[in-house]
């Protein structure tokens, strides 16, 4: 019997500091046993439990794309016991990973549609995974227009700056990068909150599906913008967070009504959430 609580051993291959406040680091992890990589077959929107012996586990969205072979990437905010410890680990250290866990973005439903990606702050990780996945040549033709609104408080708090600049150069994806404010005279992108920029840049909901991931305040103000544009709640897709332990719908803490965010989620449509108790 497979033990779903047992992490695969991995080695930290590379650590990148993402933001100017140094609170976010991206960890590139490599499986110690190559056969485990095959077992860890994931799709964008899923997450994993990262395991640090002696400290515990923490559920983190997978930031790499399944089209990137040989490693996994996780961008981790320094918050609690496990993530503080992770931020002090170094390349070469051994840790564990359990997953992939949860559902994913609705890839079948997204095929043939315009995809609008709206992200804020450090909640851009599984959206990064999705973008990398969609712009891969074999996958790109499955989707119509891809638009991305991504904002952070300042330029220095944007994740994956090197890739954002690359994506800006491409003509098969429309990028709308924004910051709440900046005194950088060389800043060449937008200034304004994510909901405002969404309102300005996204012009149609026709045949479109929106993936929204960000802080609660951003979601709160983006939702009416999307509804005004004509997005039905079935086509507004959100990824939720909740305190988790087991990650497989057994330990009982991450429920919203009869749904477990870890197993039935973390991705829900707004239509699904409207039918569940407002407790998340």
């Amino acid at each position: 019997m497979e033990n779903p609580y047992l992490p695969y051993p991995v080695r930290i291959d590379e650590i990148t500091t993402e933001t100017e406040d140094k609170n976010l680091k991206t960890f590139k992890l490599v499986f110690i046993n190559p056969e485990d990589e095959e077992k860890f077959s994931y799709i964008p929107g899923q997450f994993a439990e990262l395991s640090v012996a002696g400290k515990g586990e923490v559920p983190i969205g997978i930031a790499s794309s399944p089209t990137e072979k040989g490693y996994l990437k996780f961008t981790i905010n320094r918050v609690g016991l496990v993530t503080k410890h992770l931020h002090n680990m170094k390349e070469g250290d051994v840790m564990g990973i359990r997953g992939p866990l949860g559902n994913s973005y609705p890839w079948d439903e997204m095929e043939g549609k315009n995809v609008v990606i709206i992200g804020g702050g450090f909640a851009f990780t599984t959206l990064r995974s999705s973008i990398v996945y969609m712009i891969q040549p074999e996958n790109r033709k499955k989707f119509k227009d891809i638009s991305v609104v991504y904002g952070a408080r300042t330029p220095g708090l944007l994740l994956y700056r090197y890739e954002l600049d690359q994506w800006e150069q491409r003509d098969d994806i429309k990028m709308h990068i924004t910051v709440d404010g900046t005194d950088d005279p060389d800043w060449k992108y937008n200034v304004g909150f994510v909901p405002t920029v969404t309102e300005q840049k996204i012009t149609s909901a026709e045949n479109a599906i929106a993936l929204v991931c960000g802080p609660p305040i951003m979601i709160k103000f983006t939702q009416p913008v999307l509804e005004k544009l004509g997005f039905p709640s079935e086509r507004i897709i959100l990824s939720l967070e909740m305190r988790m332990k087991c990650g497989i719908g057994i330990c009982g803490r991450c429920n919203i009504g009869d749904q477990y965010v870890c197993k039935d989620g973390p991705v829900f449509s707004l239509a699904q959430l409207k039918e569940l108790p407002n407790e998340y």
């Binding site: 012996a53 002696g54 332990k245 009982g252």
Partner: peptide, 17 residues
């Protein structure tokens, strides 16, 4: 009732989950 928590406990250089 079935809910449970998972914790790591360390004594010296040995630990348990």
């Amino acid at each position: 009732c079935w809910c449970f928590d998972i914790q790591d406990e360390v004594l010296g250089k040995e630990g348990d989950r």
